[in-house]
Design a protein around this nucleic acid. Structure first.
Lengths: 348, 348
DNA sequence: ACGCTCTGAGAAAACGCTTTCTCATGATTC
DNA sequence: GAATCATGAGAAAGCGTTTTCTCAGAGCGT
């Protein structure tokens, strides 16, 4: 009666620690102790408690635990677009690796809306023990400001000036140069780059890489065409590509390349006989296009699991602000069937 | 001093409701009231509190809120394999729809390990306000037993006997029959079905559909070949398919069909001239294979968002155990270029 | 001017757990 | 046999909120 005014709810409530305690004839504290194996508790009592727990099917309430322990065993990931296979693969790798250590992942999709990123990341951080920010589109200044507030943070495809947040990145500049070089080695002299999203840092890196390539190969023509990041944009660029007269096409990524492949096929342009096409990322599908796509492979699966490892390191060494690993992966050119020597008599 | 033995941590702690209360010269309760806009509070005081909140950048701790409110504003989803584009699309649709209502999603990948499903689902449920179980591989009995304990639950690709848990399903049996019919109409007389995972309910539905098809078309030869659910299994089946002598192949899903397409291409078998191939699901890539894949389109994007809608309905009408919607989607045959009339003089 | 209702703010309980503090019991030692 | 110590269990504080309860004071009618 005098137990409190909220006793009414006790009827249809979930079984709690108190129920187990009562059934086992001990206190809450003892139940907690045996559930967590913390302090030494008399084996007999422990057994009694465990029996009561299984009988009542007691499962500790994670929210209560989180509040008491100050951790949620959950990490958040924010991605620009969950439809992108690259991010899907990272998410998957992260999720599986985290699960192995008993962590779960909460997802947030910013749908390429730059202004949402900071908000989503903040919310995720408050709910989770850490956040991985995947290819954020926000500006450098904003990122620099946001990073410290997110602290257990790992960055993918971006870096901060302060080196105390680990980052994972792919050397897109290097990769695109190698692909260009591959085409030149085959004999191509007229190339075109089908560029990606404006705010994508990885797109900028490709452009920088291509600038360098141009400087080293002044004899090669290299056109820049505006594109996007998905099939449809690749497909839509078909006419522009044909009109460009280029024989070697560097697509922003595999998706764009696949869209283009499809468009060229429809137009009766043969790949690689008439035009060579390269992708980027080596998504699982790249191996199965017709023809199989020459691309620069980024270790898409490792990225997710390494992100988790970096996150775990930070969570464990809580507090110590040491400088963190800045991992950079070199892409590996994967030569398949979508590239070949150009026809002997080019159209020009 | 006498405030308690845990006062030490107060230094580097996050700003809490108490800090705001102190700064504004009011009590916690009042801060809570203005933050939640619940009870009426004097406009002057409210303004003061709000000012203090923004100045301190106060953001309520979600774990504390969750404990007090008994809800987490999070739902869980458990999928058999995050690498499967179908599940990725569902996840994405779910996530985006839920986000619109201020909910987040926690993911759990069972990696096709049947025995993990129940555990993952239970854990997810305890952390979240509801769970969507996506194409669970567990047996009917186990599912039936588990369902009530998960309660705000929505099932995808499975149903329970008790109709109080909403389910979303696709009529795979119907879809596969229509695809078979399509092939027959084109003139094919020798078909083969490349089947999927043993424990997949949707695979069983396809088999049932094909049994019916056989009954209605005794004159058609229909072989059953063992396969899997991803490209590689499709690719590996290439030889068996060629050996079968069938001219019309019904692949378990688009992934398998794509693997097969690639394998046939390598072997110099022309599609659709020599062999026709169909997929299932109409994943985004299906439109861009060479040749574009004839398949049965399931409304993959709607599935996720509808799942959220059904979940929301349950969360809102908390308690009332009415019977829930059992949505069934008819697949729509999408005829592309991977199917055509068989050659006039079949090999047999 | 008195008593009544009403508004609104603070005190405190509650959410479900972990962990420190405290103290009783039984074992150990001289 | 008494003092010391180790062991282990219960009481209670604490995690950060929300919400009920309670009550002071303002406004109103008669």
């Amino acid at each position: 009666m005098g137990r409190g005014h909220m006793a009414r709810r006790n009827t249809n409530r979930r079984v709690g620690i108190a129920d187990v305690a009562e059934k086992a004839g001990v206190s809450h504290a003892t139940v907690s102790r045996v559930m967590n194996g913390n302090a030494a508790v008399d084996p007999g009592i422990a057994a009694r408690v465990r029996a009561a727990a299984v009988e009542l099917k007691y499962q500790p309430n994670p929210v209560g635990r989180s509040l008491a322990l100050g951790k949620t065993d959950t990490i958040g990931i924010v991605v620009p677009d969950l439809a992108n296979p690259t991010f899907q693969a990272i998410l998957r790798g992260l999720s599986i690796a985290a699960a192995q250590d008993g962590y779960r992942v909460l997802i947030a999709d910013s749908s390429e809306v730059t202004s949402e990123e900071a908000i989503l990341a903040g919310e995720a951080r408050r709910r989770c023990d850490g956040v991985v920010l995947c290819a954020p589109r926000m500006g450098d200044a904003e990122l620099e400001e946001l990073a410290p507030t997110l602290h257990p943070l790992v960055l993918i495809n971006r870096t901060t000036i302060a080196t105390n947040t680990p980052s994972l990145s792919v050397d897109y500049g290097q990769g695109i140069q190698e692909l260009a070089q591959h085409l030149v080695t085959l004999g191509h002299r007229r190339l075109a780059f089908l560029s990606g999203p404006e705010h994508s840092a990885s797109n900028r890196q490709r452009l920088v890489g291509l600038d360098q390539f141009r400087a080293e190969h002044p004899e090669i023509e290299l056109q820049m065409l505006h594109g996007g990041s998905n099939f449809d944009s690749g497909h839509e660029s078909t006419e522009a590509i044909i009109a460009s007269g280029a024989t070697g096409i560097l697509a922003f990524n595999d998706l764009v390349a696949m869209g283009l492949l499809s468009g060229l096929h429809e137009r009766g342009v043969r790949v690689p006989e008439d035009i060579s096409v390269t992708g980027f990322d080596d998504i699982p599908f790249a191996k199965y296009t017709t023809p199989p796509l020459t691309t620069a492979a980024v270790p898409i699966n490792e990225l997710g699991s390494l992100a988790w490892r970096r996150m775990r390191e930070q969570i464990q060494q809580a507090g110590e602000t040491t400088t963190q690993a800045q991992d950079e992966f070199p892409p590996r050119v994967e030569i398949r069937k979508s590239t070949a020597a150009p026809a002997l008599t080019p159209a020009s």
